[in-house]
């Protein structure tokens, strides 16, 4: 997800200055430990949003301290936000490094694929244990948003673990099949069909 659209959403809620925007983003994702976005990143994103005409400066706020610029969303910004809301998020399951590792391990015969599977499984379980522990510590009365995020992480991990079990169970079949190779491209000019 882009920080850009998250900031637009927070400005659609109400106009804010940069510092406030950074704090609001952090609160939304359940703390910097979940998603660390630096204040500098917020300011540079704001600058790009302004250039694109999606955000404008609405005035200055001064309460004792230095002046702060208040930013507000523009009508174009709202349209961009609407478009974002109506587009599903693409999960990137195809770019799986483990899958590539396993296939190459089968192709090269360098390592026993079981070793690779077991190492991955242990690591996934360690992650799931960490998520479970964090979830148990979270207070359902005040940190429900954070709990939902942790649940999502846990369920992704569970899915990965189940898939890994399936890979293990079908490894012998996979081994017997040739690895996908690129289609040979015909040389020279394509022949004209008659």
């Amino acid at each position: 997800m882009s920080v850009r659209c998250a900031l637009l959403g927070l400005l659609a809620q109400r106009p804010r200055h940069g510092y406030e925007l950074h704090a609001a983003f952090e609160a939304l994702v359940g703390g910097a430990e979940n998603w660390d976005v630096s204040p500098a990143q917020v300011y540079s994103t704001l600058a790009r949003l302004k250039e694109a005409g999606l955000v404008r400066e609405e005035g200055l706020e001064q309460e004792g301290g230095p002046e702060k610029v208040i930013h507000a969303i523009t009508p174009a910004g709202r349209r961009e936000l609407e478009a974002w809301f109506s587009t599903p998020v693409r999960a990137e399951h195809q770019r799986d490094e483990f899958f590539v590792k396993l296939m190459l391990c089968l192709a090269t015969g360098e390592v026993d694929p079981m070793t690779v599977i077991y190492a991955q499984r242990a690591s996934l379980y360690q992650e799931l244990h960490a998520v479970t522990t964090q979830r148990a510590r979270a207070d359902p009365r005040s940190e429900l948003a954070h709990i939902l995020l942790l649940d999502q992480a846990a369920m992704h991990l569970e899915a990965d673990l189940r898939w890994l079990d399936m890979v293990e169970a079908r490894l012998d079949e996979v081994r017997r099949q040739p690895l996908p190779e690129p289609q040979p491209r015909p040389r020279g000019r394509p022949r004209r069909a008659r």
Binding site: N34, S123, E127, Q152, A153, H156, L157
Partner: peptide
């Protein structure tokens, strides 16, 4: 395995 906490954080960023 100090890595697990880090991995969890990484995963949350990927979401």
């Amino acid at each position: 395995n100090d890595g697990a906490e880090k991995l969890v954080r990484q995963r949350m960023e990927d979401l």
